[in-house]
């Protein structure tokens, strides 16, 4: 499988190339918007790869962090009249700081208990956004958000660049000592500590990085919709982000990017089914998750050109 192997090794470059060429095909506005949303989602999904895929904690509150970033940019741009690039940089910073606060419970709570905390956090952000009308516009929403680059293509290419930079940085993180420490924490925090890793620090770091990327994604969200409403940041949205990561194979950056595209586009592709749409969507997702337990992308990766240490011709037993 020469082509498969090539695609696997250069997945990121191929994706970048496709994304750069895509607008040149002058796609319909709506298609263009879906791809834009896919990119924005991908940035958040990569953040979740760092948290859930590498380090382990499951967050159902990332829509809250997305909202934090989106409102930070929106409010600073429309109400505080900050320079737009400063507002843009402030979004991941503010979300990162909130992620720091969210990281500390993760040191004491595990599994479902931590998940409940993240759910609560997400809801708190949404309710605050709903009630702080002065700042957020409450249920009426925050309108007229300006864009960092005031044309569609500019924002699009900025997002392509951001996604690729984030992806490359995360891949570098993955192979570094920090990534190894995070992956080890996921499997066995005690041993990782005995090997000299300050487990608490690294866990909090994973939360902060993940939150900052959610915040960055939020700033792009605000620029894409140019209107913010608390309804866009529910627990369902958090779950959808988790889905992208799971579908992409948990700890795969490229997988998360591709899965973001699929999960964003699928409901739209199925729109012709009208009322059966959500049902079919749900069934497709269930099938996909039931099938290969390691995520679809990982499965494909395995199929095409993974090198095995075992001599060719020897059939490997599936060790699950």
């Amino acid at each position: 499988m020469r082509l498969g192997n090539f695609l696997r090794k250069n997945a990121l470059a191929v994706i970048a190339l496709v994304l750069v060429i895509f607008p040149l095909t002058s796609p319909p506005d709506y298609q263009f918007y879906i791809v834009e949303r896919s990119l924005q989602n991908a940035i958040l999904a990569i953040g979740l790869v760092i948290l859930l895929g590498y380090t382990g904690p499951l967050s159902l509150g990332h829509a809250g962090l997305l909202a934090t970033g989106a409102y930070t940019y929106g409010i600073l741009a429309t109400k505080a009249h900050w320079p737009l690039w400063l507002a843009f940089l402030a979004a991941p910073v503010v979300a990162g700081v909130i992620g720091l606060a969210l990281g500390f419970p993760s040191l004491r709570l595990k599994g479902p208990f931590l998940m409940v905390v993240t759910i609560a956090f997400g809801e708190i952000v949404r309710i605050v956004a709903l009630n702080e009308e002065e700042l957020t516009g409450g249920p009426y929403g925050l309108q007229g958000i300006p864009r960092l680059i005031n044309n569609d293509l500019g924002v699009y290419y900025l997002m392509v660049a951001a996604t690729m930079l984030v992806a490359i940085a995360t891949l570098r993180l993955h192979r570094s000592r920090i990534g190894l420490a995070l992956l080890s924490i996921k499997e066995d925090p005690l041993v990782t500590g005995v090997m000299g890793v300050d487990v608490s620090n690294y866990k909090v770091m994973a939360f902060v990085l993940s939150a900052a990327l959610a915040g960055l994604s939020g700033a792009f969200f605000a620029m894409l919709t140019r209107y913010l409403n608390p309804d866009s940041f529910t627990i369902l949205d958090s779950a959808t982000y988790l889905l992208m990561v799971v579908l992409g194979g948990m700890d795969s950056v490229v997988g998360a990017i591709l899965a973001s595209g699929v999960v964003t586009a699928l409901p739209e592709i199925l729109r012709f089914m009208e009322r059966a749409r959500l049902l079919v969507y749900a069934i497709i997702l269930l099938l996909v998750i039931w099938g290969p337990s390691t995520g679809v992308y990982k499965k494909l990766e395995d199929r095409f050109g993974r090198k095995s240490v075992v001599a060719p011709g020897v059939k490997l037993v599936d060790r699950g």
Binding site: R177, L180, A181, M195, G196
Partner: peptide, 9 residues
């Protein structure tokens, strides 16, 4: 992983 404490990156 055992080398963690001897690295600084």
């Amino acid at each position: 992983l055992g080398m963690h404490i001897h690295t600084k990156a």
